[in-house]
Design a protein around this nucleic acid. Structure first.
Lengths: 196, 196
DNA sequence: CTATTTTTAGCACAATTGTACTAAAAAGGG
DNA sequence: CCCTTTTTAGTACAATTGTGCTAAAAATAG
């Protein structure tokens, strides 16, 4: 029997190299040769795991959402319900290096979804998943009778969801102008404003 | 004397062709050859106006902010102060084809600012200009005594600014999921929530 | 018409691109 | 040790890239 390589781990390793190249030089410069070099592989070897560049990009984008989901799922939330909600939603803000990297890569791929149907479907899926989380937070606020009673549930969901992604966007594009702390403060401020 | 060409108009024409290619095929596919073809020029002729691709991209990105600024400046705002504010801020939402195109192009270039210092400085400038508009709106709400009196001005600015860009982002990336009307409704809802 | 200068067209070239293909290397079961 | 299959490395190639360069075309003033 031949040499055995854990394909999944290898693909993750290559995808992480892809992230690195994208962050350092941008998606346009993320050629298979640069990615292979970053991953410490030959181009031929890399093609054994991703036969086309499209496959590699699709996998690399999906890895972002997988990572975010896994972290959110495994994390233990404590404190008051409101604090727990803040922590849940903070998973979607680039408040540390790990999340910043993921979201920067996600943003770059999101821009590419505008002209790439394959990536677009993943984007849409994640959009709905994330919206579901936001919806759940709003619903919980109401159910726990923390929320003011004159809220429009649908509009609150759109508002909170847009606020989060807007904060994330600003923080990623202009970190010098909007610190991580400020994004979290703004998020907390907003949640407070929804409560009695 | 030779043939005279209005350089400014020509550059705008070429930049608009650049927009078109970017929207149809993405920034990575926006080669000088494709742009020249879209503009109805030869590559050599185009290089007479933009000697490098970087110049062309920088100009094309700046044209977006110029267009938005010009439109905002020339527009006549009427109705109540609150209605006027809604209209001002709606300039930053992709609520019609013209604005959608501009913002889609802006988003693509914004992603590129992450690895391109030249574009980044323009992005930062526009960030501050836009933040200034939002700040002015918040201040006006307070000055006109429309606002609730327990608002934190700084946090309200961050919140409103992030909300606008988040709505714009969602609407650009996932127009099927978030209609233009819904973005405007959400914006109005938010402004209402700031008032007594 | 001529002269002058701008504008345009297009070739050339080196670099880079994605990927197809071949063959060597590696490694574990027998 | 040897066989089998996976894994890797590297070459090759056509296509595309940005840009340098040259010369023709266009158009206006005289």
């Amino acid at each position: 029997m031949p040499k055995i390589v854990d394909h999944d781990k290898r693909k993750v390793q290559i995808a992480e190299a892809t992230w690195k190249v994208i962050i350092m030089e941008g998606l346009e410069q993320a050629s298979v040769r640069k990615i292979a070099k970053e991953a410490g592989l030959s181009v031929g070897a890399m093609r054994h795991y991703f036969s086309t560049q499209s496959d590699l990009f699709a996998y690399s984008m999906k890895l972002v959402s997988d990572r975010v989901k896994k972290r959110a799922y495994e994390k233990k939330y404590d404190g008051t319900p409101l604090e727990a909600m803040q922590e849940v939603l903070s998973e979607f803000l680039p408040i540390n290096e790990e999340q910043r990297i993921e979201m920067e890569v996600w943003l770059v791929f999101s821009a590419k979804t505008l002209v790439n149907p394959d990536l677009k479907s993943l984007g849409k899926t994640v959009y709905h998943e994330m919206r579901g989380v936001v919806e759940h937070v709003i619903q919980s606020l109401i159910d726990l009778q923390l929320a003011k009673d004159d809220l429009d549930k649908q509009l609150e969901v759109e508002r909170l969801y847009a606020l989060i992604d807007g904060l994330a966007l600003h923080s990623i594009l202009y970190p010098d102008e909007l610190s991580s702390n400020k994004t979290v403060d703004t998020l907390k401020y907003h949640l407070q404003s929804l409560c009695t």
